[in-house]
């Protein structure tokens, strides 16, 4: 088990812990994210990044930040799970990339960039992954409508005589 006070001594007291059912989460500010994750990997044995995702809090009552990025970690030896949540705000939605720690973060970070527009500094190849390159919105943001803005129909029509 990772001891919270130990982490607070190392990375400042802004680290907050919470529980829900069997999930254990710690909230950290963006400034200490990378040293904290590095330490979790090397010192505490969280060798696997299970998932990396984000949430847009735009329509959530009482939310203070625009986005959260969530790192779900797993200790392969003890089976312990830990979620690390970090708030991100516009217009400077940038976080350090964890590609150097876990190579599995490569596509996950690209997906978060594609869907939410949160960029990761230090990522070797941060391009759109799911949407076409020329797409200019971030679909999973709450201010993007479910049915899109007409991009899905913006194609030429092929007729019989034209083919």
């Amino acid at each position: 088990m990772v001891c919270l006070t130990e982490l607070q001594q190392k990375f400042g007291s802004q680290i907050v812990e919470s529980h829900f059912r069997d999930n254990r989460r710690i909230d950290v500010p963006a400034s200490t994210l990378l040293p904290l994750l590095t330490s979790l990997k090397t010192d505490y044995g969280f060798s696997m990044l299970v998932d990396l995702t984000a949430v847009d809090w735009l329509e959530y009552d009482g939310a203070t930040d625009r986005f959260s990025v969530i790192y779900l970690l797993l200790n392969m030896d003890s089976g312990e799970r830990l979620a690390v949540r970090v708030p991100v705000n516009l217009p400077e939605a940038v976080l350090p990339s964890v590609y150097g720690l876990w190579r599995g973060a490569d596509w996950m970070e690209r997906e978060v960039w594609d869907m939410f527009g949160i960029s990761f500094s230090g990522h070797p190849d941060l391009r759109r992954i799911l949407m076409p390159e020329e797409f200019d919105a971030f679909p999973l943001r709450k201010d993007y409508p479910l049915k899109g803005r007409g991009e899905r129909h913006n194609f030429p029509v092929i007729t019989r005589s034209g083919s």
Binding site: G148, R152, H153, I158, R160
Partner: peptide, 15 residues
Amino acid sequence: FDTYAVVQGIDRFIP
């Protein structure tokens, strides 16, 4: 799939 990414019927674009 009435969503932003899915074409709503291929018969809009090919015969």
